[in-house]
Simulated assay, not measured.
Amino acid sequence: MKSVLNIELLNKFQAVAQGPDGDLLINLLDILYARIADQENDDQYLSPDDLEAIRRGQEDMQGGRFLSLEDYRSGKRL
């Protein structure tokens, strides 16, 4: 079954690549392929705890609970 899907995908790809949108398809494929390569070479990831901390920080910023870098450097605290 997998080879049938691959053949169908290849046929569709070839049809689009030979048409007026061929350049667009190739550019999109290059972008997607680069993303995969970047992900494979990326040994860093965000843990669930990291994502939760980012979410809380975004909520704090939206609620006005933050200091500017200038205020922080001058010693102000929340």
Rank of each mutant, 00 (worst) to 15 (best):
M1P: 08
S3H: 04
S3R: 09
V4K: 01
L5Y: 02
N6D: 07
N6I: 12
N6T: 08
N6A: 14
I7Y: 05
E8M: 09
E8I: 13
E8D: 02
L9K: 15
L9C: 08
L10P: 01
K12D: 01
F13V: 07
F13L: 04
Q14E: 10
V16G: 03
V16Q: 01
A17V: 02
A17E: 09
Q18S: 07
Q18W: 05
G19A: 15
P20I: 13
P20H: 11
P20T: 10
P20M: 08
P20K: 02
D21C: 08
D21R: 04
D21A: 10
G22Q: 05
D23A: 01
L24N: 14
L25N: 00
I26T: 12
N27K: 13
L28W: 00
L28Q: 07
L28F: 05
L29H: 10
D30L: 00
D30V: 03
D30G: 14
I31L: 07
I31R: 00
I31D: 03
L32N: 04
R35C: 03
N41Y: 05
N41V: 05
D42M: 13
D43H: 01
D43M: 04
Q44K: 13
Q44R: 09
L46A: 06
L46F: 06
L46N: 04
S47T: 12
P48Y: 00
D49K: 02
D49A: 15
D50A: 02
D50T: 03
D50C: 06
I54R: 10
I54N: 01
I54S: 10
R55N: 14
R56H: 14
G57C: 14
G57N: 14
G57S: 13
Q58C: 06
Q58P: 06
E59I: 08
D60Y: 07
G63N: 13
G64H: 03
R65N: 06
R65A: 11
F66W: 13
L67I: 08
S68R: 07
S68I: 01
L69K: 12
L69D: 12
L69S: 10
E70Q: 13
D71C: 11
D71S: 14
Y72W: 10
R73Y: 15
S74T: 13
K76C: 07
K76W: 02
L78E: 10
